[in-house]
Design a protein around this nucleic acid. Structure first.
Lengths: 182, 182
DNA sequence: ATTATAATATATCAATATGATATACTATAC
DNA sequence: GTATAGTATATCATATTGATATATTATAAT
């Protein structure tokens, strides 16, 4: 039981709220979950087949669409599996930052290049922060509607706080490098 | 040229400072780089063989040790490869947080379980922060010694700031959940 | 002195995941 | 009417993890 694949759990988590196609699951990953999780089609589609084979999800064709559209739903066993995973202790949280990696070896190419990497990181974060702030506003406005929103809001707050910290660090790091250069 | 494997670049980066064995490379990953990068033996040893085959590193046996100890050094081509990679724009920074994932689906099991996960995360971060603070002190004390230290310090500062932010968020998130429960 | 334990060191492999690509349909904008 | 963007599924070579195997050496305990 200790070998729950994360991709299975995320998919079941998403399906526990609503029926979805593989494509829609990927979209959720790229928007709501983006700030702390992601997955590729190459893991989503095989996982969906696997979940159906194991009876944790069911698949049906969309009658309304002429498209080869497959809609997935969670089963009772699937919900049971998800719930079991949710109370297990977290195995690993991972931060893999290529920007910091390049910065760590920054001495090899000097302050100018390091500053460029920091600025690119800064731009990326500054661009994403507004989406999180908007999500915070939206969720705060309809917090009572659905108890799930409390949990969504907590992850959004995490994103906002860390992104703001990243931006602070960018500012300080650039100043530090410019001082050192002088 | 666009396909630089990250594992090759990290290893070359570490070798650009000093000769190392595969085992020592893994140790560096688990200490200095831990806060923003990691790799397993299963990627380090094959990558080392590959780097030697491509002429980016050389391997020699340690004469002083009876152990099957292989010491790796960077070559000029290796250093050139590293430098080229260092100025390329960052492709991806990734945060993959199982704690936030479980929290996102927290409604399924309720506030008690969510608080448990937050507390476990809090303990883990609180345990690691002192190492970063000590590294900061050490680096500040010998900043002039080696210009590399500037860059090491920047990554340590990033770690400290984000870890402190994580701890703040943990406190607030717990309070929020306790309020909601009441 | 002997034994147990922890640390050093390399290597392999099944299970997984990524990132890229292929294919094709549908809605919309011009 | 036709180009473009979005929707939708699928596959595959390559890369990575996490676990495991094996063996040596240093240190601590008895």
């Amino acid at each position: 039981m200790a070998n729950e694949k994360k991709i299975d759990c995320v998919i079941l988590g998403l399906l526990s709220h609503e029926e979805l196609t593989g494509y829609e699951i990927k979209k959720r990953m790229d928007t709501s979950l983006k700030y702390f999780w992601n997955a590729s089609y190459g893991s989503i589609y095989p996982a969906l087949n696997d979940l159906v084979n194991r009876g944790l999800a069911t698949r049906r064709e969309d009658g309304k669409s002429k498209r080869n559209k497959l809609i997935y739903s969670i089963t009772d066993e699937g919900r049971h599996y998800l719930k079991k995973w949710l109370i297990l202790p977290v195995e690993k949280d991972e931060f893999r930052c290529e920007t910091l990696l390049k910065l760590f070896f920054g001495n090899e190419q000097g302050a100018e290049h390091a500053i460029s990497h920091i600025e690119a990181f800064e731009r990326k974060i500054a661009k994403e922060l507004p989406y999180l702030l908007r999500a915070e506003e939206t969720l705060n406005a309809c917090l009572e509607e659905d108890t799930s929103h409390i949990y969504y809001l907590l992850t959004v707050e995490f994103g906002i706080k860390t992104y703001q910290t990243y931006l602070e660090w960018c500012k300080e790091a650039k100043e530090f490098l410019k001082e050192q250069r002088a």
